[in-house]
Write a protein that binds this DNA or RNA. Structure first.
Length: 243
DNA sequence: GGGCTTGTTACTGT
DNA sequence: TACAGTAACAAGCC
């Protein structure tokens, strides 16, 4: 399910429930979280960091990561295995197939907010610096690097590369700085388009290359490339290969 | 029903 | 020791 913009939608939906200051009354599910730790705790804040969804309590934070297949339901349940149900006064949050972790540290010590592509603290110059620190890497891999583009996923990778007209196998050292800057800008711009279109339930029809191979754009080819051999969509005539 | 998939971590081998 | 590559894990869509 996830990728940065979707976690932001989750946060907005939780914000609408007005749970700040409310206490956890009960938890349920197959999770291995210490229930005593959570029950009775007052929710202090709800934050996101890239694909991490963060529920902040007094002296710890519950981090929820939806991984590839995670889902959630608010004030609703489904029949599949319930992993974590957080029951507050007036609302229930249910998580399925997520990665859960209690963070003890202050979040500012653990997360560098300036690398979060959706954050108002996003620092494009820092991203450029970090990208150029990997001259031998292929650009497609760096776009999935959560230390550089926190919150970017495979859809954002593909669409941003297409918009910047850069071939995913391009080597960082060979890409002109102007094009790198353009790419970094497109990562952020597309992420906010993703957010807008996902909310309106029209995301798929606005994608230019991702899963477009045999649809609107037959010129698009699909290859499995990069470290994770992730599906990558390329419009060869439009995306220049820098090597 | 097999083969995909918006992700990450822990191994393995070089 | 560092890095590259792979397996493992998960649920749902077509």
């Amino acid at each position: 399910m996830p990728e940065g913009p979707i976690i932001l939608i989750l946060k907005e939906e939780i914000d609408a429930l007005h749970l700040i200051g409310k206490k956890v009354l009960r938890i349920d599910g197959t999770n291995k979280i210490d229930a005593d730790r959570l029950i009775g705790q007052q929710l202090k804040a709800v934050k996101t960091y890239g694909k991490n969804f963060l529920l902040c309590f007094g002296d710890f934070t519950l981090r929820v990561h939806l991984m590839m297949f995670g889902t959630y339901l608010l004030n609703e349940e489904k029949s599949t295995k319930l992993q974590l149900s957080l029951q507050f006064e007036g609302a229930t949050i249910n998580f399925y197939t997520t990665s859960l972790k209690i963070i003890e540290e202050n979040l500012d010590e653990v997360f560098d907010w300036t690398t979060d592509i959706m954050s108002e603290k996003w620092d494009a110059k820092l991203a450029l610096k970090k990208v150029t620190e990997h001259p031998k890497a292929i650009i497609a891999d760096l776009l999935l690097d959560q230390d550089i583009f926190t919150g970017a996923g495979n859809i954002i990778k593909n669409e941003a590369l297409y918009r910047a007209e850069i071939h995913p196998l391009s080597k960082v050292s060979a890409i002109p700085e102007k094009k790198l800057k353009e790419l970094i800008k497109e990562v952020r711009d597309f992420s906010f388009d993703f957010l807008k279109w996902k909310k309106a339930n029209v995301l798929k029809r606005h994608l230019d290359v991702y899963e477009q191979k045999n649809k609107s754009h037959p010129q698009v080819v699909k290859e499995y490339l990069g470290k994770g051999k992730r599906g990558t969509y390329i419009w060869p005539e439009k995306q220049h290969l820098y090597v």
